[in-house]
């Protein structure tokens, strides 16, 4: 009972975190954002790809991970359109199809000349994860005979000559888990030698970061909201990730203060107990 009395009611922690996140969103602080090498590598992969190249962007997430992955996906899609790359959208997660469509809708005003079927296509969702990617590497047309609207890919100019990964410049997966970026690395890169990159949620970043290595299994990685904010900085667009970083930093500071306070209290209590 005495132990419990010493503990702070956790609702105060929730309230402090809530205010620590809400206030910087309203009153912008503008803390600096530094770009990491991993994020710059993804940016340079897109930047150095010749115009009119065909690329695959795989939307392997759903609305549960939207706050983290949507801003980075929007930034990458925007850069691809700026560079005149032809985007083939796919999804290993069912709701990924809508996520890709939502981003294209958001960017339509900025790129009014974009034509569906010429500049981009949404092939939709396909179940199977690793098996689907493997089959795409053998014969993409057999796996995706139609786009998400049911139009035959033979009628879509962007799909001319696309039979497997040979004509694809790179693949970027926005991944919230399994199936996702891991399967793209294992099959697209390690089996078919296709340049592979991506963006992941903060939770899965530690498990995916080892693929950014000397073997270049991944060419860079955008990790969490911080990575998305770095990418927005690189393409000079102030998006939701950038505006969220003040809140992110302040919330982290609050968490650190709570951890330090709790540990100091614990240490003092232990010392007092020893004296007794």
């Amino acid at each position: 009972m005495a132990e419990k009395k010493k503990q702070l009611d956790r609702r105060w922690i929730f309230l402090t975190i809530f205010l620590g996140v809400a206030l910087p969103l309203i009153l912008k602080i503008g803390l600096p954002i530094s770009v990491s090498e991993n994020v710059r590598n993804v940016y340079e992969l897109v930047e150095n790809t010749p115009p009119d190249s065909k690329v695959i962007l795989s939307f392997d997430y759903d609305p549960a991970s939207k706050p983290e992955l949507h801003p980075m996906a929007r930034a990458v899609v925007k850069q691809c359109f700026q560079k005149n790359l032809k985007i083939i959208f796919t999804a290993l997660w069912p709701m990924g199809v809508q996520m890709a469509s939502d981003i294209v809708d958001q960017l339509k005003d900025e790129f009014p000349n974009l034509k569906y079927g010429e500049n981009y296509v949404n092939l939709g969702y396909k179940a199977g994860g690793m098996v689907t990617i493997q089959a795409m590497g053998r014969n993409l047309r057999a796996i995706f005979p139609q786009d998400m609207n049911g139009t035959s890919i033979d009628e879509l100019p962007i799909m001319n000559g696309v039979n497997n990964f040979e004509t694809i410049a790179f693949v970027i997966s926005f991944s919230a888990g399994d199936p996702g970026i891991k399967q793209w690395v294992q099959v697209a890169h390690d089996t078919y030698k296709l340049k592979t990159s991506g963006g992941v949620t903060g939770v899965s970043a530690p498990a995916i970061l080892p693929y950014v290595n000397e073997q270049k299994q991944l060419t860079g990685l955008i990790a969490g909201l911080k990575g998305a904010a770095e990418y927005e900085k690189l393409i000079r667009t102030l998006g939701t990730a950038t505006s969220g970083m003040d809140a992110q930093s302040l919330a982290h500071l609050i968490i650190i203060v709570f951890i330090l306070t709790a540990n100091i209290n614990f240490w003092i209590a232990k010392k007092k107990e020893k004296k007794k």
Partner: peptide
């Protein structure tokens, strides 16, 4: 520790997403 840090960032990001929606 790094994994915990990333997890904390991910959870705060979700709260940021909800607050961006509400505000």
């Amino acid at each position: 520790g790094a994994a915990f840090g990333y997890t904390a960032m991910a959870r705060i990001s979700l709260l940021i997403g909800r607050l961006q929606f509400l505000l």
